[in-house]
């Protein structure tokens, strides 16, 4: 199947973009500045409130005309999936940072650490281990979401499969079974990693 490279590059692209957005928006929700906080909240609610498919269509058909710029469908796929899942994952980032016990903040302040040092050396290392399993789950979600780019006619494996099926109608069962199996094979290592992360994250953490 030739579409595999597209599926994987879209997955990697949107994962990197999505995680970055998640951190930016996650910190944005926690910012002291009211304006930043409101702005991020609006962004998150819009992207979580509307459907990914609708966003994909909107970005594909509307945005280029609205801004007068041409984006490749690869860029659109990565940006849409990244921004959508970034919005979901920012809640994970926010939740994990808030889940770090208050005493940790106070202790760090007592040690005369700056705000940045406190975040970098005390809070984040503890928050990240809570985030990672969730991030793994979202990675599998994103893998499933990459199949949507076939709707905006990108040649990922779903699209290639559809084309092949159109040419050889009698092999429909084989084509779509193959597709499902391929997606499952890509997802297997991700599932495994997520399970490992879950176990790792719950290890050695004192439960109050």
């Amino acid at each position: 199947m030739e579409g595999l490279d597209i599926t994987l590059t879209v997955l990697i692209g949107s994962a990197i973009f999505g995680y970055s957005i998640a951190f930016i928006a996650g910190f944005g929700r926690l910012a002291k500045n009211v304006f930043i906080r409101k702005f991020t909240t609006v962004y998150i609610e819009i992207f979580r409130g509307t459907s990914l498919v609708v966003q994909l269509f909107w970005f594909f058909y509307v945005l280029p005309g609205l801004l007068g710029i041409e984006l490749s469908s690869y860029m659109i796929g990565v940006i849409t999936i990244g921004m959508n899942y970034g919005a979901y994952m920012s809640e994970v980032v926010r939740g994990s940072i808030l889940a770090v016990p208050k005493g940790q903040y106070e202790a760090a302040t007592a040690l005369n650490m700056s705000r940045f040092q406190r975040m970098r050396f005390v809070i984040l290392p503890q928050a990240i281990r809570m985030m990672l399993p969730e991030f793994g789950n979202y990675l599998i979600q994103m893998l499933k979401a990459t199949s949507l780019v076939s709707i905006i006619s990108m040649a990922d494996i779903t699209y290639v499969g559809l084309l092949y099926r159109d040419a050889n109608t009698s092999e429909g069962v084989a084509v779509f079974t193959m597709l499902l199996v391929i997606y499952f094979i890509i997802a297997l290592p991700l599932i495994y990693i997520t399970r490992r992360l879950e176990r790792w994250a719950s290890k050695g953490v004192a439960t109050e």
């Binding site: 893998l143 779903t158 559809l162 079974t177 499902l180």
Partner: peptide, 10 residues
């Protein structure tokens, strides 16, 4: 872990 889109096609 397989996309609902492909399941619909199937």
């Amino acid at each position: 872990s397989t996309p609902p889109l492909v399941q619909l096609y199937f």
